[in-house]
Design a protein around this nucleic acid. Structure first.
Lengths: 342, 342
DNA sequence: TTGAAAGCGCTAACAG
DNA sequence: CTGTTAGCGCTTTCAA
């Protein structure tokens, strides 16, 4: 079966005995066109259910109206929330998004960039897998005129780009302060991989509070090599093996916290009585567990919206200054740290 | 900064003193072109980093090379696995996918269809929110010549379309049989909403086994109105309120099982000793919990691949017969049903 | 205010 | 085997 014959400007012009250019003008703003003519055209368009052909517009304008979005992972619903925010902004403006997932793999990320470049996307919104990788490529795209906007996990290098981030160090501090406030003294920090800029920020926040309360002990810091359940589990297993005592855990991310918590649960620990657990990230995942996880909830959807706004700005005006937007988060206290005596 | 001047076939033809058509021929298969000429052209293309302009190709062919994918939800990593499968197949064929999420809302699903139609996607791959909704629209698109391929949650009506499904009833039976085999006698079924075809299938599987073992009791079936953690919790809460005894739960989906299990855990039940819990779906979610969830693991990635294959077939040959592919699943036995005496 | 004509980059008859 | 030409649907000078 053939596609329905789509009606074109030509058909309309023929029907109305007008030129195609006049018809065309009826669909663009502020053109020199007689209001009556415009009205007639619009009515006819309505009647025949005319829709401008996006493909032709694209070729004409050289724009694909596509924005590439590269996210580091999709195992957690983190990215999907950010994407929702992006959609909120770009769909009304007639842009599409093409989503690519890097699966925490810098090489895959590189492929994704190349793929999207090849697609001639009008801009790129990205959260990196590794703060120091693929910078050359990003740099190249940018100098070729493709706007790139980073969010959350941004490159460490001074790249001249717009970005949206959260206050990692501050909220990390606040969360650790919470752990101290509920009486915890030996607070473990499961650090994120040091290929992620945020990991360092969050560590700074953690260090600050523990030192302030003279609870700091280097032995309480364990590094996760990757963001996986297994690494979270491994980190804690290591501590236990080394016989290092602790009564709380502050993990770099949900997924790490989950690995740690499940391991403790398996071993019969009571949470939060024996060990309180808190993390950073704020996806719905944290409330799908038992006990529910106390966490720093980043404003993911807003992050996407801001990033999209910056993107659109940059597309419309490539010479605009590169803003950095810093977002506040929310502290969600849940059962994993709120011990209720039984 | 302006985009780099992209070089075109025209530039190449000028440089090589050839016509644009000859140059064009060098990039398409099986054309009448002198191998040497072709070689020269390819070399020049390489040298100048020539890339065919997708936008022009699209206009020319009337194809967007975009495939729309509509998924019912993205709270669980279900869809993302299917999408991965789709990507495996379509990316090598130079297609892009545009993902739209319906959030279990039939109206949103409708918007998504309209949106994608407007985008002139070459085909649609969809998993519905509701077996009986938006059929008119799907029907319309199909008769307008847009291939639509359904997977997993398909419409109930006899729509003449290719589809990919799993053996819901059979695996449901197998899972319930497992529950019986570990000694459970009072097996609750949390049914999915009856707007989902699979819910009925899985119920059939459940009924069959319970009747076979003369364990069937209508009171043990509770219906979830939606697929949410809360509904899972509510279903079980209801049973307990009504003082209905049970020692196992078979839930329509992961998310329902999670709600149920967390509620029981909160109330101090031991899982699986007091109550064993099993579900159907097979995302990574089930192994992120404690205890890990026994579940029917559907071959999600494969499902995506098959759906994509059917899609490509249909795009290339619209008159091809509409196949239905039925996939096998895997039973993953985990701690939520394997009680180990302590 | 409207129309004619050119052209975005590419492909595909058709002719040579 | 190669070139000429027209045209996909639309916008945009330029002229009228």
């Amino acid at each position: 079966m053939k596609k329905n014959k789509k009606i074109t400007i030509k058909d309309l012009s023929k029907y109305l005995s007008l030129s195609t250019s006049t018809v065309s003008r009826a669909f663009s703003e502020n053109q020199n066109i007689n209001p009556n003519t415009k009205k007639r055209i619009l009515e006819a368009a309505e009647k025949f259910d005319y829709k401008p052909n996006r493909l032709a517009l694209n070729l004409k304008s050289g724009q694909t109206k596509n924005i590439g979005v590269i996210v580091p992972e999709m195992v957690t619903p983190y990215a999907i929330s950010v994407i929702r925010g992006i959609e909120n902004i770009v769909y009304p403006k007639d842009y599409q998004i093409i989503i690519k997932v890097s699966d925490e793999d810098k090489d895959k990320e590189r492929d994704n960039i190349l793929f999207l470049e090849n697609l001639k996307v009008d801009a790129l919104i990205v959260s990196t897998t590794n703060e120091a990788e693929n910078i050359d490529l990003y740099q190249k795209l940018i100098s070729n005129g493709t706007p790139i906007i980073f969010y959350d996990r941004i490159p460490n290098i001074k790249l001249e780009v717009p970005k949206v981030i959260v206050k990692d160090a501050i909220y990390s501090s606040l969360m650790v302060e919470h752990l101290v406030s509920i009486g915890k003294k030996k607070i473990v920090h499961i650090l994120g991989p040091d290929t992620i800029r945020n990991a360092k920020e969050r560590e700074i926040g953690y260090d600050r509070i523990l030192k302030k309360h003279q609870l700091y002990d280097k032995k309480l810091k364990v590094k996760a090599k990757q963001l996986s359940i297994f690494e979270g589990k491994k980190a804690i297993e290591e501590l236990i093996d080394k016989n290092i005592q602790f009564d709380a855990i502050f993990a770099f991310s949900d997924i790490l916290a989950i690995g740690a918590m499940n391991f403790l649960l398996e071993k019969g620990y009571k949470i939060p009585k024996d060990v309180a657990v808190a993390s950073f990230s704020g996806t719905i995942l944290s409330s799908m567990l038992h006990p529910q996880l106390t966490t720093v909830e980043s404003p993911l959807e807003e992050m996407g919206e801001k990033a999209a706004l910056l993107t659109l700005e940059k597309i419309e005006n490539p010479t605009i200054e590169n803003k950095t937007i810093v977002l506040d988060s929310n502290l969600a206290y849940r059962s994993s740290t709120n011990h209720i005596e039984e």
